[in-house]
């Protein structure tokens, strides 16, 4: 496969803040690649370097075979970019926003209508509405349509689903899969760990460092210790008792369950159940479960540095 993005030894500082620390990775043609990490992880800085809007301090990056610093003029027209803060022109209508971005990129809506149709057709009933009056999910769709209108080779989407409800998020990823089917390569970032499963490959990123790069499946298979899910109506007490347990390794609330790993690795669940029963947690449900991306992310994260 052809790498369309190659990053090696990339670092970027803003004053004392190290936004990116020695990042290296490759992204291939027609991949749907995700950067997963919380706010402040360095996702936006990395995307701005890839879109040639920032120059790295150390290291190099190439996009579509061209260097992001020296060849920035050639790279820019080939990209479709949706910045994280992007909020369209609130005082222009849906259609006017589309026409504007089409004209800026030297094309028309009609010319590339086929490409944007699956998304834009959902917006067409509201095409005279001001973008400022659209809901979060609709805005994201319009922004995506605007980023696509010039038929870019590579889509770079910075947190396209942040602040959007679960349904709109799901629909948004469905659209990205359709676009991937059209042969477009897509790089997207998200703070929602569960969206990792939507990507072909993901990079887990935190505090400017890449924690892991792999397919979602392979990432979870690297989780070293057996993981147990426990359930009890009094979750708060359950968490506290598990923390007090002498072999306790990690305890995290996780949806309806509490995820637990033990210092000894594989354990006899009856022993744990006994301990809990004695300590006021009657009849907890305990079962071994498969870890997901979020378990992996937490196990890889370095603790917050206390000295700022």
């Amino acid at each position: 496969m052809n790498p369309i993005v190659q990053i090696s030894g990339l670092s970027k500082n803003f004053g004392k803040v190290e936004a990116l620390k020695d990042v290296s990775l490759e992204i291939f043609d027609n991949e749907l690649f995700g950067f997963i990490g919380p706010d402040g992880a360095g996702k936006t800085t990395l995307f701005r370097i890839l879109t040639t809007l920032l120059v790295p301090d150390i290291g190099s990056a190439s996009v579509l075979g061209m260097d992001v610093v020296s060849d920035y003029k050639k790279i820019r027209p080939l990209l479709g970019y949706m910045p994280g803060t992007f909020s369209l022109y609130q005082d222009l209508s849906v259609e006017e926003n589309m026409m504007f971005f089409a004209s800026v990129f030297g094309t028309t809506i009609e010319e590339n209508y086929d490409l944007v149709k699956p998304i834009y057709s959902q917006l067409e009933p509201f095409k005279d509405r001001y973008a400022g009056n659209l809901s979060g999910g609709m805005k994201q769709k319009l922004a995506l349509s605007c980023a696509l209108i010039h038929k870019p080779e590579l889509l770079i989407l910075d947190e396209p689903t942040t602040g959007v409800d679960a349904v709109s998020r799901k629909e948004f990823w469905e659209m990205l899969h359709v676009l991937k089917g059209e042969g477009i390569s897509i790089i997207a970032s998200t703070p929602y760990m569960d969206e990792a499963n939507q990507c072909d490959r993901v990079a887990l990123i935190d505090k400017g460092e890449i924690l892991n790069i792999n397919t979602p499946k392979n990432i979870t298979s690297e989780f070293k210790k057996p993981l147990y899910g426990l359930k009890h109506p009094n979750k708060y007490e359950l968490i506290n008792r598990l923390r007090d347990f002498e072999y306790s390794d990690s305890v995290h609330p996780f949806g309806e369950f509490v995820h637990y790993t033990d210092e000894r690795g594989k354990i006899d669940t009856d022993e744990l159940k006994n301990y809990l029963n004695v300590n006021g947690i009657r009849e907890p449900i305990i079962k071994q479960i498969d870890p997901d991306i979020e378990d992996m992310f937490m196990s890889l994260m370095k603790p917050e540095e206390m000295d700022v």
């Binding site: 701005r48 879109t51 040639t52 809007l53 820019r76 027209p77 990209l79 970019y81 910045p83 994280g84 803060t85 992007f86 909020s87 369209l88 022109y89 609130q90 971005f101 800026v104 990129f105 030297g106 605007c146 980023a147």
Partner: peptide, 14 residues
């Protein structure tokens, strides 16, 4: 700049 639109304009052929 505030609305983030400048980033797109810069990346565009303008």
């Amino acid at each position: 700049k505030e609305m983030g639109n400048m980033e797109i304009l810069l990346v565009s052929p303008l």
